[in-house]
Simulated assay, not measured.
Amino acid sequence: MSIESSTRERLIATGLPMILERGYNGLGLQSLLSAAGVPKGSFYHHFRDKEDFALQVVDAYMREVHAGLDACLGDPSVNPLDRVRRFFASTQQIYRHQGYMGCLLGGLGQELSGVSDAFRLKIEECFTEIATRLAVCLNEARECGDLPATSDPQQLATLLVDCWEGAALRSRLQRDHAPLEAMLEFYFRSAGKS
């Protein structure tokens, strides 16, 4: 990895938890630069502005999400619903490790979607990508009879992402895992065959 690449990656790696904790508007560039040990000129060498930086942080976050989806959804020896649940259990462990700060996408979406089309569109695209990946597994569950034959896997996946984001917000407010666990239990019990 080149020095330029490592500087860019260090800024993103340092900025992700800072944005998660403080939000976009609460992230000061000077505090980011100090925490990353990077001079100001290096920031503008890698990013046009703070918005460009935060959008690249979202891209890095999504690479982590996709890696988690790959690890959890990609094992055909595991029941499809168990694979989906495994992804959310794994995500819950990440949230716990981070102090229940919630989802970066949800936080930025709540903070910026009303004032920035760039963030609104980017975050909606990310949620759609996640739901589309989950829908493939939910379709497998429908095909093997674990979901009703009349169910719509894409609709179920979108609802799952929406419910998770609400539970992640409650989890952040309470600094507790209970809303996440309750949501998953309710969802999987409700989505199953009647």
Rank of each mutant, 00 (worst) to 15 (best):
M183P: 05
P153Y: 00
A118S: 15
V57P: 06
K122D: 07
L16K: 02
L81F: 00
E140P: 03
R142Q: 03
I3T: 14
K122L: 08
H66R: 15
C126M: 05
E185N: 08
E51M: 08
Y61V: 03
A35Q: 08
S34H: 11
E165K: 07
L20W: 04
A149P: 09
S194G: 15
R63S: 06
G192F: 11
L134Q: 03
S77R: 12
Q56D: 06
L104H: 11
A71H: 01
C72T: 07
R142A: 00
H66N: 13
E125D: 14
L20D: 07
L73V: 01
G23A: 00
C126L: 03
F88L: 11
R83L: 06
I19V: 15
M62N: 06
V38H: 02
L147P: 01
G166Q: 02
C137D: 11
H45M: 06
K122R: 15
V57F: 08
I123F: 07
R175H: 12
D52V: 02
I3N: 14
A54E: 09
G74F: 01
E165Q: 12
L20I: 04
V58R: 02
L180V: 08
A118F: 08
D162H: 14
Q30L: 14
A167K: 00
T158F: 09
E9G: 10
G41R: 04
G26K: 00
V84L: 05
D49N: 15
C163F: 09
A178T: 14
K40N: 05
Y61D: 12
S151I: 05
I130S: 02
R10D: 07
K122Y: 10
I12T: 03
K122A: 15
L160I: 11
V161W: 09
G68E: 00
